[in-house]
Design a protein around this nucleic acid. Structure first.
Length: 440
RNA sequence: GACCCUAUCGUCCAGCGGUUAGGACACUGCCCUUUCACGGCGGUAACACGGGUUCGAAUCCCGUUAGGGUCGCCA
């Protein structure tokens, strides 16, 4: 039997991180077991069903690196993959329930008559759970069709899972209490329920369900704030699970090899943006340069940095990669390399450039550098240190003003790296201007 | 209210009958260092409570408490 899992979001115009994680776990499970991952859009509520809302889902999943084998945009053997287009199928299944005497009319709506027996759910994550369905007050007969003919979630969800031959249903724990209802439907239809796996919920710092207002509650947030997808995927897996060997940073390949849904714990987890941020830095640090360029470039383009040739952009990105924590910070980190019109941080100017003697030291350094025949990291470092010795000052007394002279700020890439990327002429020109500025 | 799930540092995870209760984020001290990072070495900090079971319990059982979820003609 081929494993078939699905992600079945409703198009709300917003992809929740919890949804992203559900999608991820389903995808991981399918890929690990050589199965199929299906995308189904639950858009029975037509009011909020827009094309843009669908796009948010596609974009979010693609960004996370999750590809689906069947879906609305892709087709597949068991389509259509939008519930709004599956009404005929639901009608057929309703007829089956009617035939078995499982439904009745109530004020124009159609309800499913619960057998009122206890239902046992064997859950991949939660284990064996028994639900007592005998009390109609607490477990009323569920409605499956409204008077206007539109369908209710529980019913269409089950019908589609049957029709699409899903073997495993991995979803949020908020559905655990709904599961016995779903099982009753499977039984009434004479179908075998899939294997369920209810994963714990993601909470905010107040311990409440993560809502739209919370920072980092949507996948879009991570896309826009310069997170690497691999870092977000990594973090999401770490919520409720660990590889068991104290590793924190794992690549997608490593996750695919060791992530196991039934080892996930049953506790709801509080989302910690700090740790996600740290993982992002770790991933950026260790990813290939090519990958870094791929992820950083869109931010550079969006900021409309006039970087000239591709080579010069790559040179700038290379010296910044070990420092950057958010990809969205890249434009700010490299901008000063491509314009003479960069701004000077007043605090930095005050602290090093305007320090007594700074202008003179800068001039001395300039003189040394003018005569430098070789413009490399090593020769620049040697030259600067010699100058410092000759002047009888500490290296830092030259480094700090030079850094501000060349970049306008006190924080940035390595000094010699900046010299090399700027080249001799521009470096010396900036020295000139800064000396004048310091003197003034 | 009923039913279901859960309970280890502030947070995320390890632990599955005998441990100085471990790692990571955050916070913090020192070192490295041209800034900022990175990295290295430390520090602060936890078994919710009460009963059992056992020679022995963070670990097993039962309660209590707390948190979360579900009980829609939302999904």
């Amino acid at each position: 039997m081929t494993v078939r899992t699905r992600f079945a979001p409703s198009p709300t115009g917003y992809l929740h991180v919890g949804g992203g994680r559900t999608a991820l776990f389903n995808w991981l499970y399918a890929r690990r077991h050589g199965g199929k991952f299906i995308l189904r859009i639950e858009d029975t509520d037509e009011k909020r069903n827009t094309e843009e809302a669908h796009q948010v889902i596609y974009d979010g999943l693609k960004w996370l690196g999750l590809d689906w084998d069947e879906g609305p945009d892709k087709g597949g053997e068991f389509g259509p993959y939008r519930q709004s287009e599956r009404s005929d199928i639901y009608a057929k299944y309703l007829a089956r329930l009617e035939l078995g005497g499982h439904v009745y009319e109530d004020g124009g709506a159609i309800r499913f008559r619960s057998p009122r027996k206890s239902v046992v759910v064997e859950d991949m994550v939660c284990g064996r759970i028994e639900f007592d369905m005998s009390n109609p007050a607490t477990h009323p007969d569920m409605t499956i069709r409204r008077p206007d003919g539109s369908w209710i979630f529980h019913f269409v969800n089950v019908v589609d899972d049957i029709e699409m031959k899903l073997t495993h249903v991995i979803r949020g724990e908020d559905h655990l209490s709904n599961t016995p209802k779903h099982v009753e439907l499977y039984n009434a239809l004479g179908e075998k329920p899939p294997v369920f796996g209810h994963i714990p919920l993601i909470l905010n710092h107040e311990g409440k369900k993560l809502s739209k207002r919370d920072g980092g509650s949507s996948i879009t947030y991570f896309m826009e704030h310069g997170y690497a997808p691999e870092a977000v995927v990594n973090y999401l897996c770490l919520l409720g699970w660990s590889p068991g060997d104290n590793r924190e940073k794992l690549t997608m390949e490593e996750l695919l090899a060791v992530f196991d849904i039934d080892k996930i714990n049953r506790r709801n987890a509080i989302f910690d943006l700090d740790k996600c941020f740290w993982l992002n830095g770790q991933h950026i640090l260790s990813m290939s340069f090519e990958r870094f360029v791929e992820l950083a470039k869109p931010f550079v383009e969006k900021a409309a940095i006039a970087y000239g040739t591709n080579e010069s952009l790559l040179a700038a990105l290379a010296i910044v990669k070990p420092k950057v924590k958010h990809l969205s910070d890249v434009p700010d980190w490299i901008g000063f390399l491509f314009t003479e019109d960069f701004s000077f941080d007043s605090e930095a100017v005050e602290k090093s450039l305007n320090k007594a003697g700074a202008a003179g030291r800068l001039q001395a350094l300039r003189t040394t550098l003018v005569n430098l025949s070789e413009w490399t990291h090593a020769s620049l470092e040697a030259a600067l240190k010699e100058t410092a010795t000759a002047l009888g000052v500490k290296t830092g007394e030259l480094v700090h003003p030079a850094r501000v002279a060349v970049s306008g700020r006190s924080v940035g890439p390595g000094l010699y790296e900046m010299f090399v990327v700027l080249g001799k002429d521009r470096t010396l020109a900036r020295f000139e201007r800064a000396s004048a500025k310091a003197a003034a």
